[in-house]
């Protein structure tokens, strides 16, 4: 068995790469569908698929070259010698299959087709410095005032933001499905919990139209609220929004 494992190292590496491909292509979308209680599979994005496959193949090659013996066995599989019938069969399969797979990849990449371009998005556009120095005036107030502001903010949030962002701030508002890019789920720890209050103030006030030119086109359908809401109302909405989502804004840290 050990002999076979050594002599068939190339086949094992190829098998592992195929298994990884199948996992990413078919298993993981289903697993995430179940785990996240979705009504549809969650396909692995093509960029990620490519990166993970490159790493999988690289891992196989690294393993196959960690000793001279392994390396010789790995390459030796391709050499003609008197091995078991299965080896000769696999060799033929490899010599035919490899060019076919390469050809298939070349064909699928080169045929003309209509697909929207892959966008290199930037998560947090640069906050203009005029907003950096701002402070939420209600965060420094006494506990009772803060509580009051949060409650007022929650009402404002349900009035203005709920249609898209949802009553639980989870991005599942009644209009959410009508957008190509769904509204953000604020409960996700990687969203509003990673930014300071002022960042939200800027986003609410300026909305999608106020986004900078970098990495355009932006898909944000967020309206600009500066003509409809007063600054105080926006600060209160921010407080209510964090409270509804159950997360905290990033705090300014003291320098050591």
């Amino acid at each position: 068995m050990a002999y076979k494992r050594r002599k068939f190292l190339l086949i094992w590496v190829i098998t592992a790469a195929i298994c990884l491909f199948l996992f990413l292509k078919y298993v993981s979308p289903k697993v995430f569908q179940v785990l996240m209680a979705k009504g549809h599979p969650m396909p692995t994005p093509s960029t990620l698929m490519m990166w993970y496959m490159i790493m999988g193949v690289l891992a196989g090659l690294v393993y196959a070259t960690t000793s001279n013996q392994k390396f010789a066995d790995f390459l030796g599989f391709l050499l003609p010698d008197s091995g078991p019938k299965i080896k000769i069969l696999l060799q033929k399969l490899l010599f035919v299959g490899f060019p076919v797979i390469v050809g298939w990849f070349v064909y699928t990449w080169s045929i003309p087709g209509a697909a929207s371009p892959v966008e290199l998005r930037i998560q947090h556009p640069t906050l203009p410095q005029e907003f950096e120095k701002l402070d939420n005036p209600f965060r420094q107030a006494d506990a009772e005032t803060q509580r009051k502001c949060i409650e007022e903010g929650k009402i404002l949030f349900q009035t203005y933001c709920r249609p898209c962002h949802g009553s639980k701030a989870d991005g599942n508002g009644p209009f959410a499905n009508s957008f190509r890019l769904r509204p953000i789920n604020f409960q996700d720890p990687g969203t509003i919990a990673t930014v300071v209050d002022n960042y939200l103030f800027w986003r609410i006030k300026e909305g999608g139209p106020g986004l900078p030119t970098e990495s355009t086109p932006w898909d944000s359908a967020m309206p600009s609220w500066k003509d409809d809401l007063k600054d105080d109302e926006i600060w209160k909405i921010i407080m209510g929004e964090y409270d509804t989502a159950g997360v905290m804004p990033r705090q300014r840290e003291k320098l050591e």
Binding site: P45, T47, S116, V118, G171, R182
Partner: peptide
């Protein structure tokens, strides 16, 4: 933030893929 095509984004149906 993954680089996503419009189709992929529509299929995933939200901002972030679980990965």
């Amino acid at each position: 933030n993954l680089p996503l095509s419009g189709e992929e984004r529509a299929m995933i149906g939200e901002q972030y893929h679980p990965f």
